[in-house]
Amino acid sequence: TEEALKNKMPKDITSKYPLVFLQSGDNLGFAGGNNTGIRYALVKNDFEYIWLLNNDTVIRKDSLIKLVEFAEKNNTGISGSVLMYYDSPNTVQTYGGHINKFLGTSHRILKKEQIKDKLNYIVGASFLINRKVIEKIGLLPEVYFLYYEETDYCFNASKNGFSLGVALDSVVYHKEGQSTGASKKLKSEIDALSLTNRIKFHKKYLGGGIGLWLGMVLAFFIRIGKGQVDTIWKMMRINKTLNLNSKKP
């Protein structure tokens, strides 16, 4: 129960910052679940930032403090932490993400020197949103269910004049994939959903066309080479009316 969970927390924390647990009643996906909390915060109307944090992460005591300090100093619309592998805490998982604007492929940024030129989306595992962004562009897009929501939101924010940034002294340890419960049985379904969402994203922000075609052909050949043909069939099943020529998301 909520009361039992509160009793396990230090009293000075729960008295000053009460914990609120919201039940959506259904699995709404990454965006839908987070939007439930954001809507609650908007009703309370007592915040300047929203911090989205995956449930498969472990933070340092100052992870949020450093993140907010960075956002305040640099006036960023959306800020991210440095994500480290939980099982290998000295290894960087990513500083952020980069989308190839022709093919639509996504890549992790693994060198901090590349942040300035490469960063065009913040990874959703630790995702700090300035209130002004929410007031300007609204909630996270719920059309994806899982994957590409934060990418879409960052592109939308950038299009509306907000900057992105990574707080190098805000560190979060990520147990990658555990928020989805990604067993071997589910990996192909998740991969198929990710490819489907790439198509939606490309059509919305990158124009579709030949770049989308080439990117998907490349993705198919990579999976065929790995013996993951089932991923392709599952993607087609998810999106039976797939039309790469259409520019509609």
Rank of each mutant, 00 (worst) to 15 (best):
K73F: 03
K44I: 10
V68A: 09
R60E: 15
N74D: 10
G37S: 07
F47V: 04
A31K: 12
N54H: 12
F30P: 05
A41D: 03
G32I: 15
V68E: 05
I50S: 07
R60Q: 14
N35R: 07
E69Q: 15
W51T: 01
N45Q: 01
V58K: 10
E72M: 08
S63T: 09
G29K: 13
F70G: 09
N34V: 02
K73C: 03
N35F: 04
R39S: 05
G33P: 09
N74C: 04
T36E: 07
D46R: 05
G37K: 06
A41F: 00
D46W: 01
V58M: 07
F70S: 13
T36P: 01
T57H: 02
G32D: 09
V58I: 11
L42M: 14
L53C: 14
I50R: 07
E48V: 04
L53P: 05
S63Q: 10
K61D: 00
D62Y: 09
V68I: 13
I38M: 10
G32M: 11
V43K: 08
V68Q: 09
G29C: 12
D46N: 13
F47C: 00
L42W: 03
N55D: 15
N55Y: 07
I50F: 08
R60K: 14
I65L: 10
V43W: 05
E48D: 14
E69C: 10
G32H: 08
F70I: 00
N34S: 12
F47Y: 09
K66W: 04
K61C: 06
F30R: 09
G33I: 13
L42E: 06
N74M: 10
K61V: 04
A71R: 06
Y49R: 00
I59G: 06
D62N: 14
F47W: 05
A31T: 14
A31S: 13
R39H: 01
W51S: 07
G32A: 13
N55E: 09
W51C: 10
I38D: 00
T36D: 03
I65E: 12
G37D: 02
V43N: 05
R39E: 09
A41I: 06
K73M: 03
A71W: 03
V58S: 05
I38W: 02
R60A: 08
V58C: 08
